[in-house]
Write a protein that binds this DNA or RNA. Sequence first.
DNA 1: CTAGGGTTAG
Length: 736
Amino acid sequence: METLSTPLVSLPSQTNPESRTVKNDGRNRLVFSLIDQCTNRRQLKQIHAHMLRTGLFFDAYSASKLFTACALSSFSSLEYARKVFDEIPEPNLYTWNTLIRAYSWSPKPIESVEIFLRMLCESPYFPNKFTFPFLIKAAAELSRSRVGQVFHGMVVKLSLGDDVFVLNSLIHFYASCGDLDFAYQVFVRIGEKDVVSWNSMISGFVQGGCFDKALELFRGMEAENVKPNVVTMVGVLSACAKMKDLEFGRWVRSYIEQNGIKMDLTLSNAMLDMYVKCGSVEDAKILFDRMEEKDIVSWTTMIDGYAKLGEYDVAKSFLDVMPTQEIATWNALISAYDQNGKPQEALAIFHELQLSENVNLDELTFVSTLSSCAQLGAMDVGEWIHENIKKQRMKLNCHLTTSLIDMYSKCGNLEKALEIFNSVERRDVFVWSAMIAGLAMHGRGRAAIDLFFRMQEAKVKPNAVTFTNVLCACSHTGLVEEGRMLFNQMEPVYGVVPGAKHYACMVDILGRAGLMEEAVEFIEKMPITPSASVWGALLGACKIHENVELAEQACSRLLELEPENHGALVLLSNIYAKTGKWDNVSELRKRMRVSGLQKEPGCSSIEVNGTTHKFLAGDNSHPLSKEIYSKLDEIVAKLKSSGYVTNKSHLLQLIDEENMKEQALNLHSEKLAIAFGLISTNPSQPIRIVKNLRVCGDCHSVAKLISKLYDREILLRDRYRFHHFSGGYCSCMDYW
DNA sequence: CTAGGGTTAG
């Protein structure tokens, strides 16, 4: 028997190349069987060559056979397949469908649509019931609502609207575009639902966050006698995970056992994830140890579980004993640290990774690490990554572009962020939104709004995040009129329903501008319950405009929603201090002490030569502490001789002695960081500081003066925005 | 000769 272990030289080659009509005789069948047995690209190419020689390639049916192997086999490439396709003189419908199918899986599903259009123009065929599932799958991958809707229309017109395969793919499509209502309408109208119909709808509901509906359907299956399978259970477990319902998860496990559903790798992984998300790493570990087959997902899930619990050592020990060290697992650890507010630890892992030789950093490594750099303001590491991306000639996709823009913006280098933004070819909604956010946090409100409109010209639809960012820009720059207009257009013009964040932004815009009555009225008219952030914004405005009465109301509303929110009390106490109500301040302090609420300690960090130094107020743990304090004394003396008077209302605590007050202010973490920056960085370099809370008024005035007296640029990022101090001025124009 | 649904990280 001929197999491919036999050299391909023995291929039959007697067919006359002149004759283009090739019969399906035995010899052809041999070629087809060889195609099926191909295990690598070389063999495939040899068969291709042979078929060209013999003319078999010019027979549409035979060409389709070869083409299928080119397009769908794991060892071939789509690029090659495409070349083969373009050589086929008259591809048949099967061949067209296969190419559409191949692209629908590929990283470029849009090509499916392009091929489909070509087919309509160039071929004599109409799409059939096989074409649409592939095509609709591509539309789902693209999340392009309009495109899929057009296909749905064609399905109906071509009378394919009762094919269960086509309809199932439409359920999946609508669900992945977030149109759960449409998906459900398709679902209920299917006459003979099969298990895939149910599964598609269940996963659709799970992914759309409608867990109750998903579980309702799961029970509905039983009622209609459709037996759930592995995929059903994956969906149901995923719902448990997202609801964090461990009890139900355990019930599902026994259901799986009782119904004899075979636990395959994916189902086991889904169950691991359920246990981890529901907080039982113990159960996960037992299952993990019993699993015969484990893949990268299993390991990653475990590592992620331990890392999120803060058991980083255990997480790392998993990483060390993994059979193959894959970058995905390292990425999981980095991103777990990053998202759990431990960016420094994330960077430590990244450094370890840089040293290990057998793992190659990938795009996700960079995305997660850049996010940590952004959090910390660690621009040196961020720049290293940027350099490396260039060196590796890694293509800047939208994910990476967004991360880089975010990192540079948050590290204070807005120009670099803009440079990247202007240089990339592709900009999706996230890229635009990140750039708008960057401009906003640097106080370039006008530019942010301009960019928002340029985004419309580029035909990119803004989403909820875009609006949060652009409204934020308005609030930082005091653009009340623009903010009002944008907010009012959100739903009618852009179809984005304003959420809690947008309302909070609007209250912030109005409140900061001193339009307190309008802000209150705005809150009263809100169609959704005002969230804590809405009251927080009002409270913040009360601080600026010294409105004690309203502040008290806002604060109590805020505490109703978030009793643990110490920030609210701190803010209120600041307002009391600012208006000289020291009795109220001390009463509040007592209340905070009694309830065990503590002010989040202010902390400033500064990166010098790739190392981040952290300072708390009054901190003397730094090795250069002595030098820092003497620098601070020098600064204070210089400030005083230039006529500066401390504004003591910025103090939270009631401190009796006047000079104590002054001292406490002088020990604020940002001042320590600036002093350290002055002694440890090159005078030509700006001093870059990141503060976890908002900068206090006194520190703000002092920073302005230092920038002038020492002729140094200071970039201070606080919780909300950037302050560029230079020549005695701040970029926020004291509006913050 | 072809098809649709599933787990992790972002």
